[in-house]
Design a binder for these strands. Structure first.
Lengths: 210, 210
DNA sequence: TAGATTGTTAATCGATTAACAATC
DNA sequence: TAGATTGTTAATCGATTAACAATC
C-alpha cells in the first residue's frame, strides 16, 4: 500500500462509491466480481478501478477477480469506518437537525455526541435524543468528552471564530456546511466543505445551458 | 463566449465560488479587483481565474482589472440565477425538510412549489408554508403547474422508478440526495448527485490517514 | 508614454485510459 | 495447459500553470 498521504484526492473521492456498490453486490449475494463487471455496473473504466484499488494494495487474484466480502472489509479499513470518532454538531437550525437526523453516523466512522447552538431559543430541544446545549457549555463538554470532529451548520458569519475556538479545544476535523470556505485557513486541520448552494447553482447552469 | 456545452465540469464547479466571493466583495464596497487580488483572496492562481473567466467572454479591462458589479451580473447570467424554475421536493423526511427550510431557492434560480411524500404520515404537514402532498396528487399537480426540476430526498430504494415517473411528467433536472446514483440512467436528464454519506466517508479517510 | 493587467498561447503537470506481461 | 483477469507500465488526454504579447 502506498502512503495514504500520496493518494490523490480524485481517488479518495471515489472510494466511498466503490464501497457503496460493493455493499449492494453483497446484499444481492454476489461473492466475486471482476474489474470489468464492476466497471460496467458503475459506469467507469476497468482500468480506473484496477489503478484505484492498487493504490491500497493488491486485493485481487489474477484470472479470478476480486472477492466482494474481502474488498468491502479492505475499503472499510481504508475509510476508517470501524473507528468511531466522537463528533459534535454546531448549529441546530433546519439544516443541522436534518443532517443529524438523517445519517447513520455509526456506519460512517463517527458518533454524534452533542449538539450546540448559540441561539438560546434552541437550548434544551431534543434532536435525535440529544439535548441542544448553549455555547457556554462547549468548553467543559470538550474537556470532559474530547470530541475530535465537528459538523458546522451555523447560519451566522462567525464561522472562522468558531473554528478557531474548536481548534483550541482539540477539534481538528470539520464537516463544513456553512457559506464560508475554511480550507487551509488554519494549518493542520482537515476540512470537507459541502456548499449546498454552490451545488444547486451548478445544477442551474447545467440545466439552463445544457 | 464559448459554447456552454464545451465548458469543462471543473470550470463550472468553480463559478459559484467566484460568485460567492464577488458578492462578499461587493458587500464590503469593493468596486474593482484584479485577477491577482482575487486569486490570493480565494487561494487559487490568477492564471486559473483569467482562464475560467475567458470561457465566458472578456469581462476585464487590460491594465485595470475587473469591475466587481458587472462581474457579478455576468456570473448571475451564466448561472441562470435570474430565471426562476419551478421545483418540487420528493421526500419530506428529516433531510428533505432541512433542505427545504434552509436554502433561499429564489436567489439560486429556482422556486420550491410543492412537496410530496409517499408516506401518508406526512400528508398535510406544512413545510416552509407548503403542505406535504401524497403521491396520488403528483400527476395532476405536474400537469397543472409544470415543475421542471426535482429535489430527491427519498429514503426508499424506489429512486429509479420515481425518476422515470417524473421524467414522463416533464421533469428532467434532478438534485439527488438519495443513496442511489442516477447519472446517465436516463438519457437527456441533468443530475447533480450529492451523496452526504460519501462526503463524510472521505472526511473519515482524510482524518484517519492524514 | 509608462505601468499595470488582461487575454491567450505554450509548457507543465496530473489523471485517465490502453496495453500487456505476470500469474492464478 | 489454456483462459481469464490482475497488477503495472506506457500512452493519451485534459486541466492547470507560466509566460508574454496586446492593450487599456
Amino acid at each position: 500500500m502506498k502512503d495514504a498521504k500520496t493518494i490523490s484526492r480524485a481517488v479518495i473521492n471515489r472510494i466511498p462509491k466503490y464501497y457503496r456498490f460493493l455493499c449492494g453486490l453483497q446484499r444481492n449475494g454476489t461473492q466475486k466480481i471482476s474489474s470489468g463487471e464492476l466497471a460496467s455496473l458503475m459506469g467507469v473504466t476497468a482500468s480506473q478501478i484496477r489503478q484505484d484499488f492498487n493504490c491500497f494494495g493488491g486485493f485481487g487474484q489474477q484470472g479470478y477477480g476480486y472477492n466482494v466480502e474481502s474488498l468491502i472489509n479492505e475499503m472499510s479499513d481504508i475509510l476508517g469506518l470501524g473507528v468511531s470518532v466522537p463528533m459534535i454538531l454546531i448549529g441546530a437550525g433546519n439544516l443541522g437537525r436534518g443532517i443529524a437526523n438523517s445519517l447513520d453516523f455509526g456506519k460512517l466512522g463517527f458518533e454524534l455526541t452533542a449538539i450546540f447552538d448559540s441561539d438560546r431559543m434552541f437550548t434544551g430541544l431534543k434532536v435525535r435524543g440529544l439535548p441542544v446545549r448553549c455555547f457556554d457549555e462547549l468548553e467543559e463538554f470538550c474537556a470532559v468528552n474530547r470530541p475530535r470532529a465537528a459538523i458546522l451548520c451555523e447560519q451566522s458569519g462567525e464561522v472562522r471564530e468558531t473554528v478557531l475556538k474548536l481548534t483550541e479545544l482539540g477539534i481538528h476535523t470539520f464537516w463544513n456546511f456553512t457559506q464560508y470556505d475554511i480550507d487551509d485557513v488554519f494549518p493542520g486541520i482537515t476540512v470537507e466543505n459541502v456548499c449546498l448552494s454552490d451545488s444547486l447553482m451548478t445544477l442551474s447552469f447545467r440545466m439552463k445551458n445544457g
